[in-house]
Computed example of a mutant assay.
Amino acid sequence: MSDAHVDASEREALYRIMALRRDCRHFTPGPRLADAQLERLLQAAHQAPSVGLMQPWRFMRLSEPAWRERLIPFVEAERLATAKALGERAAEFLRIKVEGIRDCAELLAVVLAPDDGTVFGRRSMPREMAWASAACAVENLWLAARAENLGLGWVSMFDPEVIARELQLPAGATPFGLLCLGPVPAFYEQPMLEEVGWRQRRPLHEMLWASPALPAAGDEPG
């Protein structure tokens, strides 16, 4: 491809967008996104890599007020169940805003499609590689949204079986996110959970594990 080379300014822009991306929960109420803008964002998601080119992601637009009101009780039920599971941190957790379903410009469901039988690259980890591939699409969407100065928040507090039933998904399909998307009053300086003191990001060096010593000659399995 004649235009495949990425220059320094493009590279720096990408790294900057990655650093500025946030999981947003506070949105500016307003109109839905223009269809052309939403299509750009979904096209970015659709350009994500997938194992065996299986493309297991599916998106549903649920931005009508009736859909929002229908789904919120299921999110609230899981929020309360999460608080109960957190024990002594329950009250602290309940003070944290966990979604912007009512206020965001667009509400999307992201769904893992029924297994299409792809074997290439996932014979030994069929489910895991489907999930990983679909998550790549969400990350693409997240970065594209930030590049358009829009916020995105991934809501995972719901019972997937209940939401699958509400959305009338086909057998074998699994919802794994309600994505709040739209303009925000401001982007958080840090991840919101750091700002509210819930948890601190760990440094990169803690994520790097040393490789084990190779077995000595003659110790290899026969």
Rank of each mutant, 00 (worst) to 15 (best):
L42Q: 11
K84W: 06
K84F: 03
R202G: 11
F93Y: 12
L14H: 10
C136Y: 12
D7E: 06
A81R: 14
L193T: 06
L208S: 02
L41E: 00
R79Y: 05
V138W: 10
T174N: 08
E69S: 09
V138C: 10
A147D: 13
A137K: 13
V138D: 01
F93H: 08
D7I: 07
E139Y: 12
P221V: 03
R22I: 00
L86P: 15
E139M: 15
R127Q: 15
T28C: 08
A4T: 10
M157V: 01
P31V: 02
L107V: 13
L193F: 13
E128Y: 09
V138R: 07
R146W: 01
P212K: 05
E99A: 14
M125S: 10
A164H: 02
D35E: 15
G153A: 02
T174R: 09
N140Q: 12
V184G: 05
R40V: 08
G197V: 11
A173C: 12
R199M: 08
R89H: 15
F187V: 04
A85R: 15
Q168A: 15
V119S: 06
L86G: 11
P185W: 07
T28H: 09
P183M: 00
R22Y: 01
P114F: 00
I101G: 00
A132W: 13
R79A: 02
E220Y: 09
M207G: 05
M1F: 07
A135G: 10
M125Q: 10
W131K: 03
Q37M: 09
A34T: 14
R58S: 08
W209I: 11
A217L: 10
L208I: 14
C180G: 07
V196S: 04
R201H: 06
C180M: 06
A217Q: 14
P212S: 03
P73V: 02
A217K: 13
M129P: 10
I72K: 01
A83G: 13
Y188P: 14
R40M: 06
L33C: 09
A173T: 13
I96A: 07
R68S: 00
D116T: 08
E128V: 04
M1H: 14
A210S: 14
Y188C: 04
G218C: 00
R127M: 08
M207W: 04
L38C: 11
D35K: 15
L214W: 06
R95E: 13
A81C: 01
P56W: 07
S9L: 09
L167W: 12
F93V: 03
G177E: 04
L179F: 11
N140L: 10
L214C: 01
P185E: 04
E92L: 09
S63V: 03
E92T: 12
R127C: 07
F158D: 03
H5A: 13
A145I: 14
I163Q: 04
L214V: 02
G153D: 02
T174Y: 13
C104S: 09
R70M: 09
